[in-house]
């Protein structure tokens, strides 16, 4: 079985984000970029499934300018077999991303599509579900664990009240949550090996997808800042403040 993993290049999760002075966007100049953490979990899961003999090829795809090849190489170093970059100027909106990925699914015919549940930049949590709808596939979002066999994938999901398990007929789309696995550290020999793995470049035109704008970002501003309050020196002082000043207990 072939597994397709869709990944995104985002700001490194340790970087403190700053808004540009003109409020047009956040400032990404000279900021460290990385593979979106949820996407990394998706790659790791696909590679583990291959190591368990449940998949025979792991293909990774990313959309964006040439810089996304860096994250594709990371995914290849984690153990993916080959990569596809769909070249666009910037990362497209979720629905456009889903339409491009739907074309890749049509070409590659994977049994399973794995992707992160959300990217930590736009925090949309949409693309996997949209892709599933466009290709008419069943979906399991927020995967906590999964069991794959030739016909189906059984996925336990993290939901508001606890855990919920679904069985999906393949092909299916699964989006990863935090606890699905802990991605391995990439070793130097794997990075060297990844440089030689195949990486194909496609374009939206080549895939026959017309990108359409659905939203305009009018402004990006810093959130209201909370001021640090006061230190209290004892439990008694704390309870006094909560009762008599804040009046919350």
């Amino acid at each position: 079985m072939k597994i397709l993993v869709c990944v995104k290049r985002v700001i490194d999760y340790n970087v403190k984000v700053r808004v540009k002075a003109d409020q047009s966007d956040v400032d990404l100049t000279n900021v460290k970029m990385a593979l979106n953490p949820f996407c990394e979990i998706a790659v790791e899961e696909a590679v583990r499934l291959k190591e368990q003999g449940k998949a025979d090829e792991v293909v990774v795809v990313s959309i964006g300018p040439k810089a996304v090849q860096e994250q594709l190489r990371t995914a290849l170093a984690l153990g993916a077999d080959r990569a596809i970059q769909i070249e666009t100027e910037a990362a497209p909106e979720a629905l456009n991303t889903a339409k491009l990925l739907a074309k890749v699914v049509e070409q590659e015919q994977p049994g399973l599509v794995l992707m992160g549940k959300q990217s930590i930049d736009s925090d949309n949590n949409q693309t996997g579900q949209m892709l599933a709808a466009l290709i008419g596939a069943p979906q399991a979002t927020f995967a906590y664990s999964l069991e794959l066999d030739a016909e189906q994938v059984v996925v336990t999901r993290e939901v508001d009240g606890g855990l919920k398990t679904l069985a999906l007929k393949l092909p299916a789309v699964v989006t990863t949550d935090l606890r699905l696995n802990e991605p391995r550290y990439v070793k130097l020999p794997d990075i060297m090996k990844a440089k030689k793995k195949p990486l194909a470049v496609e374009t939206p035109d080549g895939l026959g997808v017309a990108l359409k704008q659905h939203q305009t970002v009018l402004k990006v501003e810093a959130p209201g800042q909370r001021q640090a309050g006061i230190r209290v020196d004892s439990v008694d002082a704390l309870l006094d403040k909560l009762k008599n000043e804040a009046k919350v207990i």
Binding site: I11, K16, V17, V19, V26, I120, D121, S122, D123, Q213, H214, Q215, T216, V217, L218, K219, V220, E221, A222, P223
Partner: peptide, 16 residues
Amino acid sequence: RPIYAGNAIATVQSLD
């Protein structure tokens, strides 16, 4: 809507 884990707030206009 919040983006970047709430470290920025985007004002978004829908064209749909």
